[in-house]
Design a protein around this nucleic acid. Structure first.
Lengths: 219, 219
DNA sequence: TAAAAATTTTAGACTAGTCTAAATTTATTA
DNA sequence: TAATAAATTTAGACTAGTCTAAAATTTTTA
């Protein structure tokens, strides 16, 4: 089934907003797609007609198996292109998102296969997020929010929850990157901000707002 | 100036149809864009408003310097991506056109620069066509149609005038590729078909229709 | 050079995707 | 649980790009 650029974007964002046992709301989609709720309603009708989502008026929406497969294929392309941009072209990991947003819509199964092989079948993208395989399977890491780690615990930065250029730039400036080790030295009770030790040498302070967008694997 | 996918395609095709001292006709554009003349008229009005083309009703259209620069940037991207697809991903040269048609519209100057460097700043694409440099300059080869070569002359296949998958596949099957040497052994007067000797070893026969789509450099 | 043919443009309509404003439904709370 | 607030949908309109059919212009040809 050939989908438009826009339809693909809706599916991708619905997948991103999906949580097991929950439906996705119209407003949530409107929020992350920077559009109006009424536009979302229109598109959900269309996607439901194509059997890509299960949509019940006023209740919410969820992906059908077909919709999920389609969305995962887009995520796969997005993350493979990010690897290409960073590993092959020398982009820094905070600058690839917008370009990958465009590249993910290029239509060619053969291209995706060959790109995957060229890159050495990577399992994670430069932000630490797992790359779905050709059949849509995703490696399931047990990830935790940095904001939920207790004082004294040690962990590795794995991925981020906010892909905005602003957030990624901020992280880069602060010196935080996927793969870095973090030891939580103190949790400030009042505002849940953190003092952390990065790679056993740099001591920095981060707000709860930042910590809530950083996903880690506990050692 | 941000242009739509469609506007970029119009510019690219107008460039391809442009010949020094001639304007491009509405029908010619409609023909190669697979659209109707009335749609072309509408778009020409729009491109003229943006100062990308000089358009006179009923007369024809030509690119302004700005329009030409924009079109050359698209051609540059198209041909760089074709090099990538063939050299890095292992596509055969007859299969890359459709994918490059999509990739050429990805918006990012930094991406084009980095891709150019990654590929070693190639001067020609896999079909032998010159790649405009970042400022829009194109290497000017003196090219000639194979159909215009006289019996006894020798030349090198440089590029093709028809990028359709069908034509490229046919060439590949016949064993004709950019870079191959051709000696015209005989020109059949009746239908202008040719007997040619490829790389001093293989004797083949080609119709005038084919020869008119092959561009060569004379030795 | 006037009539016929071909080309091009205009007029009006259609689809995809979006919007605002109003109406409807669901959730909250007093 | 009835009133209010929040979320969602509907109705109608707008833009980009396309189309068909008719009108206008240019080119060809007899």
């Amino acid at each position: 089934m050939r989908l438009s650029f826009t339809e693909e974007n809706y599916l991708k964002h619905i997948l991103r907003l999906s949580k097991p046992g929950h439906v996705v709301t119209t407003n949530a989609i409107a929020g992350c797609l920077q559009t109006k709720a009424s536009s979302v309603t229109d598109m959900l009708d269309k996607l439901a007609l194509k059997k890509l989502v299960a949509y019940e008026k006023y209740k919410g929406v969820s992906l059908t198996p077909l919709g999920k497969k389609t969305a995962l294929a887009i995520v796969r392309k997005h993350r493979l292109w990010e690897v290409f941009l960073v590993e092959k072209l020398g982009f820094t990991w905070d600058k690839v998102h917008d370009i990958a947003e465009q590249l993910e819509h290029i239509q060619s199964d053969e291209l995706v296969d060959k790109l995957d092989i060229f890159l050495g079948r990577p399992k994670f993208d430069p932000h630490g997020e797992p790359i779905p395989d050709a059949s849509g399977k995703v490696k399931n890491q047990k990830l935790k929010l940095l904001s939920e780690c207790l004082a004294g615990s040690t962990c590795i930065i794995s991925e981020v929850n906010d892909d905005s250029a602003a957030f990624l730039r901020h992280l880069d400036k602060t010196g935080l990157k996927p793969g870095h080790e973090i030891k939580v030295t103190e949790v400030i009770d009042y505002d849940k901000s953190l003092n952390i030790l990065v790679n056993s040498k740099k001591n920095i302070f981060i707000s709860n707002a930042i910590a809530k967008n950083i996903l880690v694997t506990v050692k």
